[in-house]
Design a protein around this nucleic acid. Structure first.
Lengths: 155, 155
DNA sequence: CTAAAATAGGACCGCGCTGGTACTATTTAA
DNA sequence: TTAAATAGTACCAGCGCGGTCCTATTTTAG
């Protein structure tokens, strides 16, 4: 399957907590976030630290500390969050820059995988954190001119 | 990362072998495919069996047997191949139908993940096996009306 | 008819990575 | 001064991924 890790998943869920009505105060502790999301506290901590290191959150240490968004949720893309938590998006191993693929010279599909990878990245880059809380506008998740017939998975 | 497994990767590479110029004869054994792709034979066998079970290949047992495509490469989508080898595409665990997610009731992003998942599936469904061997037409890998600015990952 | 060459369908297995925990140091508000 | 928080990092179990192997069956060639 094409699956993202729980880390990435958690990262996005946590980030969206900062824009829920109930958390308008903007500063949330790991403990609060864990209870809001029902995720295990140590994991939440770990993910928050990563998001902070990558500059998507700012932390406030000490008593009554916590985390808050480093910029407006409309200016943070889903792709950024995923990348922050677990590095560059690479659907196949060979698209990871650090990899060396012995099959590369005889691989007929690599170039096109690269383009598909970019397409997916574009989708995730075009969706902001703020977008994730309300029904996504169609144009953000549909293909352009080419699509005419109903995809098979939609019966 | 959003990563597909090697199984899926191999599956696609193997399927495309059936439409290379040199294999116009259409019947390829696991051994031939392994050497063409430089992939380990046992793995190749395993993947071919899966593709056959799912009806994308037809097998010919016995001496001078092998595999061939069950239908025209223009009628087989990339999504079908991936799904055949490793089940339905589900970017998050909760999108897998068999999963039960305790966070579901408090999860603000699930609905939109579902839509993103469909978007990715659409992209992969619109690309045929035959498409994978030549440069993909732009409209298959770009978003529709919404996209105006250059995505951040393209510098 | 027999042997060789294939696929079918499993069982099996190591090892790395994912998901998760724990501990110590540091910062800071009350 | 103490308690509450983050920072950093080490640690760990389990399991799924990637990979192999073995036996049974089918089929063609000689």
């Amino acid at each position: 399957m094409i699956r993202m890790s729980k880390f990435a998943d958690y990262g996005l869920v946590l980030m969206t907590q900062f824009l829920r009505a109930s958390s308008a105060e903007e500063n949330l502790s790991a403990r609060e976030l864990a209870s809001q999301t029902r995720l295990p506290l140590p994991m939440v901590s770990k993910v928050l630290k990563a998001l902070t290191r990558e500059g998507l959150l700012v932390s406030h240490r000490g008593a009554s500390g916590g985390y808050s968004l480093s910029r407006s949720p409309a200016k943070i893309s889903v792709a950024e969050v995923l990348t922050a938590v677990e590095g560059p998006i690479a659907m196949t191993e060979c698209l990871d820059s650090t990899s060396v693929c012995k099959q590369e010279s005889v691989c007929p599909v690599r170039t096109n995988w690269e383009r598909i990878n970019f397409a997916v990245q574009d989708v995730l880059d075009a969706i902001s954190l703020a977008d994730m809380l309300e029904p996504l506008p169609d144009h953000l998740v549909t293909l352009g001119v080419g699509e005419t017939e109903t995809p098979s998975h939609r019966q």
